[in-house]
């Protein structure tokens, strides 16, 4: 039981990952696909961020004196995953921006952003 509740961050990650993945596959509206893709990527961000937390660790900022007692903190959370995730977020933003730009162009050319209608139009010789 402790395992299931104690690992709730991973459960959230998995839930978001599968939701995002499902939306990408199942939804035919292109914008919804992009939303699904974003949710999928966000789940990974959460995975990284939560992995950085060290039990009993505080935010990795120096100098680190306890608010009330004035002692120095000895344990910090890992700053690296957060940094990695900033990079990944940037990548995600760029991907989403590019995808949305493509959708704008697709709408200009096809007049629709529903995937099945687009494929229908392409099937015509």
């Amino acid at each position: 039981m402790k395992e299931i509740l104690g690992l709730y961050n991973y459960w959230v990650v998995i839930f978001l990952m599968m939701t995002g993945f499902y939306i990408v596959i199942a939804r035919r509206n292109l914008i919804k696909k992009v939303i699904g893709l974003s949710i999928f990527q966000i789940s990974v961000f959460l995975l990284y961020i939560t992995m950085g937390k060290v039990t009993g660790g505080t935010a990795p900022i120096l100098p680190a004196k306890h608010f009330t007692t004035g002692e120095d903190f000895q344990t910090f959370s890992n700053p690296l995953p957060s940094v990695l995730i900033l990079t990944a977020i940037v990548v995600g933003v760029a991907t989403t921006a590019l995808a949305l730009a493509l959708i704008v162009r697709i709408h200009e050319e096809y007049g629709t952003i529903e995937e099945d209608e687009i494929l229908e139009q392409d099937r015509e010789p």
């Binding site: 995808a99 493509l102 697709i106 050319e109 494929l119």
Partner: peptide
């Protein structure tokens, strides 16, 4: 225009 959907 199929290039767009291919890229997507």
């Amino acid at each position: 225009r199929r290039a767009l959907i291919a890229a997507f």
